[in-house]
Write a protein that binds this DNA or RNA. Structure first.
Lengths: 334, 334
DNA sequence: CTGAAAGCGCTTACAG
DNA sequence: CTGAAAGCGCTTACAG
């Protein structure tokens, strides 16, 4: 199958490449008859422009990259998908870039800004740490989602996130209200300033208010995968079998824990209650259905895209938006 | 942040752009001292080449597209991911393209072949029907995975798949061996020549051998999502409550069915047995763990990439490879 | 080992 | 409304 270029089309249609380019880009300044002739030829040849050539000259509106670490995380994936859904009709075009779990998404951003002349970035999930220093001299606007970038030193960094401290508190409060006192927390690193640290801090707030002491050995750091949580949970419950409830910092972790408990002969929620975080689809079908903190995926996605476009096209200043999450009561807590 | 071009680097290093291009492409014919100087300048400027410009001239090894329909399907996703893992060290570069559930992956292939000069295609999942006719005059090699392309009319179409008929039979046999006779089948369209039709045919083989009649009303066509299967299952079991086992043509469907049964007060596998298909990760954690037909994801991925490269680079003829699937007995069948 | 020059397929002032 | 020409950032014969 021959691959036609704009030149071939021009020759066949008896016009100049300039004219073909014009109809290709739907510019108004082309005679109707000419336009139709060119369009006919393009259709016959099934002409599709070469994206490389176009990108070389005209950076195709603006190119925006949605970057997520790990292809496996269902919550992050649903966020990216929702963003793409809010992308139609925009003059900018979007690409989604997955980087390895162990890779550096900020390095990836720097690379993309050169390699593909990406003009704006949305980071889905993750955290801002020293690695982010490479973003210092990048003048492209960026928005961080699910974490706050308010304290970040980058001039053009915006963010959209939920109040993790309040929701961490709400999750813990749910467990407390159900009468639990020997409660474990499974999650990410609890120090620092990211969402996990805040969820932890919120949980501590609730505990403190309730006058319930926290047994430090009941904080368990785990990988954010089902199998990681499964292994960790087995070890933990062998050591601390009198634990009656768990606050899991993601639904994926919650499911791994529940599976482990089930294998150890404990029933959820009859013997142990588990509350998750994120509100992924699977949580509605898992047995038991997950009680969880549901992040407003669509709101986060919409706001992120909006803010980025505002910064990119209207040169508006970065904003930091807190969206409302909510507790969803289902079956895994009693 | 200034974006440097090869020209800037050349000027700063006091050499020609040709030389910069050479060190950029790690060609051997550059004086060591020159190479080091250029590399130093590139590092200082954090130079990264413009992919568009490169792609315009040198089609970057060959570009291969892995196309999958739907971003949500965990089985297809794991296949794509496994393919990418077999991609390192190859001279070709790969991109993965997701098309909408309702979109046409073959149109997408045609578009990609022009737009990005894609030279080879791997279709993950899906089916070959009239829509595929647009591939007729494409001379790029392509491999279809999980379905056979042996009867397809395209000269350069290869395929890698499991013996769906045999495995459909094995799934049904498992249910039969457990003593079930009132068995339902949930899946895709049962006519035609694709994997679903074959699984259905295989199930019929087993039934026939066992002398167990199949009640036509127990064939249920459903969407391949948990929520689709959930709705369908609720309706079905209200109509046919005496059904004691289900062969689900995907694990996702199986989980939707099990959730529905649970909500109807039926226990799996105590009251109803369910066998799935695919062998996705979640099946190992779901409660009950899924008994299923496990597709050899890694084998399929490796063979697919291998065959495509053989066709593309050594101009070998297309092959059609059947890989071994296996029955994995877990907890959902009794 | 190195460089000048042509060209990849497109877009976009500029001139008419 | 239309076209000739320059140029985007790179690669690659070709000549030296």
């Amino acid at each position: 199958m021959k691959i036609y270029t704009i030149k071939d089309i021009a020759r066949k249609a008896g016009v100049s490449v300039t004219t073909v380019s014009r109809v290709l880009n739907k510019r108004p300044d082309v005679n109707q008859a000419t336009r139709e002739k060119v369009e006919r030829v393009m259709a016959e040849c099934r002409f599709v422009g070469n994206a490389n050539a176009r990108g070389l000259k005209q950076p195709d509106g603006d190119l925006i990259a949605i970057i997520l670490r790990g292809r496996e995380n269902p919550f992050l994936n649903s966020l990216a998908e929702a963003m793409l859904a809010h992308t139609h009709g925009l003059k900018a075009s979007f690409l989604t870039e997955f980087v390895d779990e162990q890779a550096d998404e900020f390095q990836a951003a720097v690379r993309l800004s050169h390699e593909k002349r990406v003009k704006g970035f949305i980071f889905v999930g993750g955290r801002i740490d020293e690695r982010a220093d490479v973003l210092q001299d990048m003048d492209a606007p960026m928005v961080f989602t699910t974490i706050s970038a308010e304290k970040a030193a980058f001039p053009r960094a915006a963010s959209v996130y939920i109040d993790d401290r309040a929701m961490g508190r709400a999750a813990m409060q749910t467990l407390l209200d159900a009468g639990h006192t020997r409660i474990a927390i499974f999650g990410g690193i609890r120090v620092g300033d990211d969402g996990f640290a805040k969820r932890y801090a919120g949980a501590m707030d609730a505990l403190k208010d309730a006058g319930v002491p926290f047994d430090e050995e009941r904080f368990v750091q785990t990988r954010f995968s089902m199998s990681g949580a499964y292994d960790t949970a087995q070890a933990f419950f062998s050591a601390k079998p009198d634990t009656t409830a768990v606050f899991a910092m993601s639904d994926t972790i919650a499911m791994g824990i529940i599976r482990a408990l089930t294998d150890m002969g404990k029933s959820v929620p009859a013997d142990v209650s588990v509350i998750g975080y994120d509100g992924i689809e699977m949580g509605k079908f898992f047995i038991p259905r997950l009680t969880t903190i549901e992040q407003p995926v669509d709101d986060i996605a919409r706001e992120s895209v909006q803010i980025l476009m505002d910064m990119l096209e209207d040169n508006k200043p970065p904003r930091h938006i807190v969206v409302d999450a909510k507790l969803v009561t289902r079956e895994s807590v009693r």
